[in-house]
Simulated scan of single mutants.
Amino acid sequence: MSKRTSATVANGAASKDDRQSSPPITDKQKVLLSTDAGHFSLIRALHLADLITELNGLCGILSLFSSMRYCLGDPTQHGNLWAALFFLPFGLFFDFLDGKVARWRKKSSMMGQELDSLADLISFGVSPAALAFAIGIRTPLDHLCLAFFVLCGLTRLARFNVTATSIPKDANGKAKYFEGTPIPTTLGLDALMGWWLSRGWIHDALPGGVWFSGTVLEVHPVVLLFMVHGCLMTSRTIHIPKP
């Protein structure tokens, strides 16, 4: 749900346009990123908003690691699953906050917009797919379906970077609508998995069970929710008005 803009904009989620009215990349950052400007030039080039975006990415990474730790441990101990779910709403918080800070400080950057997209892909694409794997959506066909979901998120972010400037704007320069569902709406899937976890509906108890068990087509039907959500993210006909 990035908020970075200049010639291109980063993601398509709710507060992305917070950075659309920001000025173009600063000369100082251009110098630091494109020339040999001494030690730690990359760190010195980051704006405060960029550092907040990094926290969004950190939340996604920690969620991913928590899912992995659960898979390596006792499947009856769910603490790491709850931790994986816990980090993701904080990713959304930082995703909103970085745009607000960018507007406040009147600073925007090409690097910032790229950070936004990459952080969102981790927090709202890869991490939910890893969590789905951790709770038991693990057949080979499940893997392909979850990969489709992640690739839809990746494609949505890339498309928004290219097309954001062509979306109609309001008087303040903000896009009037989202084209397709914003990628942070995958938090709805996270909430659903949290509900399943609270009821003990994981692994063999996943809702809908498993279809075609023992065959090459073995699949958990709940994975279709991820595929449908992926299609909604990449839709060009769905226009969601911005608040």
Score class of each variant (00 low, 15 high):
Lys3Cys: 14
Ser6Ala: 06
Ala10Tyr: 04
Gly12His: 05
Gly12Leu: 00
Ser15Gln: 05
Lys16Arg: 09
Asp18Val: 00
Gln20Phe: 03
Pro23Asp: 00
Asp27Val: 01
Asp27Lys: 08
Asp27Pro: 01
Lys28Arg: 11
Lys28Ala: 05
Lys30Pro: 00
Lys30Val: 10
Lys30Asn: 10
Val31Arg: 13
Leu33His: 03
Gly38Asp: 05
His39Tyr: 00
Phe40Pro: 01
Ser41Arg: 13
Ser41Gly: 03
Ser41Pro: 01
Arg44Met: 05
Leu46Val: 03
Leu51Thr: 11
Ile52Lys: 05
Ile52Gly: 03
Thr53Pro: 08
Glu54Tyr: 12
Cys59Pro: 06
Leu62Lys: 09
Ser63Tyr: 12
Leu64Trp: 14
Leu64Arg: 05
Ser66Tyr: 13
Met68Lys: 08
Met68Glu: 07
Met68Arg: 09
Arg69Phe: 13
Arg69Met: 14
Tyr70Ala: 11
Tyr70Glu: 11
Asp74Ile: 12
Gly79Ala: 15
Leu81Trp: 14
Ala83Gln: 15
Ala83Thr: 14
Ala84Cys: 06
Pro89Asp: 07
Phe90Trp: 15
Leu92Glu: 06
Phe93Cys: 05
Gly99Cys: 08
Gly99Ser: 09
Lys100Gln: 14
Lys106Thr: 00
Met111Ala: 12
Met111Tyr: 11
Asp116Met: 02
Asp116His: 00
Asp120Gly: 05
Ser123Gly: 01
Ala129Val: 03
Phe133Ser: 05
Ile135Glu: 09
Gly136Phe: 13
Gly136His: 14
Arg138Pro: 00
His143Val: 08
His143Met: 12
Ala147Phe: 13
Leu151Ile: 06
Phe160Arg: 01
Val162His: 08
Thr163Gln: 08
Ala164Thr: 02
Ile167Tyr: 07
Ala171Arg: 01
Asn172Phe: 00
Asn172Lys: 13
Lys174Gly: 06
Lys176Ile: 10
Pro182Gly: 03
Pro182Glu: 08
Pro184Met: 01
Thr186Phe: 00
Gly188Leu: 12
Ala191Glu: 05
Gly194Lys: 07
Ile202Ser: 13
Pro207Ala: 13
Pro207Val: 10
Gly209Tyr: 05
Phe212Pro: 01
Glu218Val: 09
Glu218Gln: 13
His220Arg: 14
His220Ile: 11
Pro221Asp: 10
Val223Gln: 01
Thr234His: 07
Thr237Asn: 08
Ile238Pro: 01
His239Thr: 02
Lys242His: 08
